[in-house]
Nucleic acid binder design. Structure first.
Lengths: 184, 184
DNA sequence: TCAAATCGTCTCACATAGTAGACTTGCGAT
DNA sequence: ATCGCAAGTCTACTATGTGAGACGATTTGA
């Protein structure tokens, strides 16, 4: 159901270490993390804390975000439908499924919004990203910084510059739509 | 001396949560992480594991790498000389200082290579990055996939496509040079 | 062939990450 | 007031991440 980053980090860590031809002891000395711990992380027997991840990425000369990003890219490129992580908002019944494998440059997200439900996002949630909404089924009211749009199945909307916005489903059956997220 | 990512994560976590107007209990329910723990992380009293970071970023609908990257961007934009993290290779005496604040689009790194020292990198360490070397002091022999270059103070070299490469200092005094890293 | 070094894993002691639930504070509402 | 509720912190406990060093396996080297 959900994706533990410790798995992807394990293989990336091992890969980066071996690419440099460093032994566990080498990396331990360079990073200040014990070799026992590094061994456990590589074998997925422990989930490292942010602090040790910081030390490890420092030894590689990589910002932590880059290490994590390459871990996400190194993960499977095929995302099987039945394994795509689904997330539910316990209050509204909003349902979100992550279609794309982790690390994709454009991220596909399938959303199902129950009849009558409404969900809103602050502008800050969209910083540095561009998104399009393509309605698959049902109807969707979308408001963006006060301006409203009414979308039906097949319609596709490109979101403008970041502003507070909200989705709501005015119909009597769930609305399904695809969100395409590009970051940059 | 060194930068614990837990600090930057703390403020970013709080920022993302409050931007969505979620209480600790809200985020706890959505992420499956206890509110006590979220509180500790936000107050820098704990360094979260990769596993809980994965759950938290999932609740925000963000890939973990994006969450970490925004944490790095949210950190100080001024990097004081005396606080720049220095890293030493215990074997060769190689010295690396991270000049740029974390999250900069181009990263400045000052390196000091002791007389006679040699350091090499596999091609894989350079994937998805472009780099330039500018010699500040001393002399530097650089070999890139078999091709050699001899650099003196003031010279600047743009590295080509990823290939195994090595730095060595043929002189009798340390070589100092600046590495400019751009990722994309 | 045997010693010495190296590598990854394992053991154990300890610190700390993580949880459930009680507690404190602050804010309306009537 | 004072009740009720919600938000964040604290307490007590458990699970697990982390480090120092031992161990067996493999390699190196004379």
């Amino acid at each position: 159901m959900e994706h533990d980053p410790a798995d992807a980090i394990a293989s990336t860590l091992k890969h980066e270490r071996e690419a440099r031809k460093w032994s566990l002891a080498d990396l331990a000395e360079r990073s200040g993390v014990s070799k026992a711990m590094i061994s456990k992380i590589e074998r997925r027997e422990a989930s490292p804390t942010a602090t040790v991840l910081g030390r490890l990425s420092g030894a590689f000369g990589l910002p932590l975000s880059v290490l994590i990003a390459s871990a996400e890219k190194a993960a499977e490129r095929l995302s099987l439908a039945e394994r795509q992580p689904v997330w539910t908002d316990p209050e509204t019944g909003y349902l979100r499924k992550t279609i794309s494998p982790a690390g994709a440059p454009a991220e596909l997200i399938e959303v199902s919004l129950p009849a009558g439900a409404r969900i809103s996002y602050p502008a800050s949630a969209f910083s540095f990203q561009q998104q399009q909404i393509w309605v698959l089924e049902g109807r969707l009211d979308f408001s963006e910084g006060g301006v409203g749009h009414v979308l039906k199945a097949g319609d596709c909307l490109l979101l403008g510059p970041p502003s507070d916005c909200a989705f709501s489903n005015p119909g009597t059956s769930p609305a399904r739509y695809l969100v395409v997220l590009s970051r940059g």
